[in-house]
């Protein structure tokens, strides 16, 4: 029917409905996921700095600190967990931050700078389809990254992954809440760089600092309390804590601030950041800076 219409002309009322309704937005969104994911893996620098970075660091840390012996070992050297097992939750948390916040923050700022968003603004692509594409791209690439990290830890460094279903349940909800929050915050901060060229310079350094103070590279328990308090404002600390709860033995909970995993705290902190991010996106996202 509609496919046989070859000349330009007005559409009838009913085809209008079906063509521009929510189903079309969803269909275009799914198509955007494929397009966005293809573009992601074609850009060599993002593949390295967001996709492979945590994987490479997990490898380096595991090898470099391997000689220090197990973490949490008894005085006689028995027990405890390997350095690879100890760093795994932090690297997964860093991966979530990079795949969400850094990836989308830089990506969308560059698309705004190079005219991609302006071009899309002139097409009948719904904004929601664009976001479905971005969120889907983040989910697909981040899942691949997490699987790669788990495989590397298990296969190369012999890390024993949890066997209790409760631990994996924790892993799944912390991961999902973390990645969705990170993606939404990435969209929100893409407004900050004034140009596409400055995007990496504006977004990457603060995120790097955040990784150092949130228990990713340095043990959170070693940080002074005031620095812990600052880090607790931001979501990465909570993602890392949730990942430790899922992947480390429960005996490690005593090393956390307050002596427990505080999973309700993780859920509340990430939930607040998710809502804040959504509001900021809703209020500030525009296809283009009008009148610039």
């Amino acid at each position: 029917m509609s496919t046989t219409i070859l000349t330009p002309g007005p559409l009838t009322g009913t085809t209008r409905e079906s063509h521009f309704g929510p189903l079309r937005a969803l269909r275009l969104g799914v198509r955007r996921i494929g397009y966005e994911t293809k573009l992601y893996f074609r850009a060599g620098d993002t593949v390295f700095f967001t996709f492979l970075f945590p994987v490479v660091l997990l490898g380096i840390f595991s090898v470099a600190f391997g000689g220090l012996g197990n973490v949490g070992a008894n005085p006689d050297g028995s027990g405890g967990i390997s350095q690879a097992a100890y760093y795994l939750p932090g690297m997964i948390a860093a991966g979530i931050l990079l795949s969400g916040v850094q990836n989308l923050g830089v990506d969308i700022a560059m698309e705004r700078g190079d005219g991609t968003l302006k071009r899309l603004a002139g097409t009948p692509l719904p904004v929601i389809s664009y976001f479905i594409g971005k969120m889907g791209q983040v989910l697909v690439t981040s899942l691949a990254q997490v699987i790669l990290l788990l495989l590397l830890a298990r296969v190369a460094f012999g890390v024993a992954l949890p066997t209790e279903p409760a631990k994996w349940l924790t892993f799944v909800w912390v991961y999902l809440l973390g990645i969705v929050t990170a993606a939404v915050l990435g969209i929100a901060i893409s407004r900050l760089p004034r140009s596409g060229k400055s995007a990496s310079a504006v977004i990457i350094p603060p995120l790097l600092v955040l990784q150092f103070i949130s228990g990713v590279y340095l043990s959170f328990a070693l940080l002074p309390e005031w620095l812990q308090n600052i880090a607790s404002i931001f979501p990465l600390k909570w993602i890392a804590q949730g990942m430790r709860a899922a992947l480390l033995p429960d005996s490690f909970a005593s090393a956390e601030a307050g002596g427990s995993w505080n999973l309700p705290g993780v859920a509340i902190a990430l939930g607040i950041w998710l809502v804040v991010g959504l509001v900021v996106c809703r209020v500030t996202f525009r296809w283009i800076r009008k009148d610039s």
Partner: peptide, 24 residues
């Protein structure tokens, strides 16, 4: 969106998206 579907725009500045082929 319906209105946008009826117009075509060639902007003064080229949009990038350099990592896809012409056909894609």
């Amino acid at each position: 969106l319906e209105w946008k579907a009826r117009i075509g725009i060639v902007l003064q500045q080229t949009g990038e998206s350099g990592n896809v082929t012409v056909r894609e």
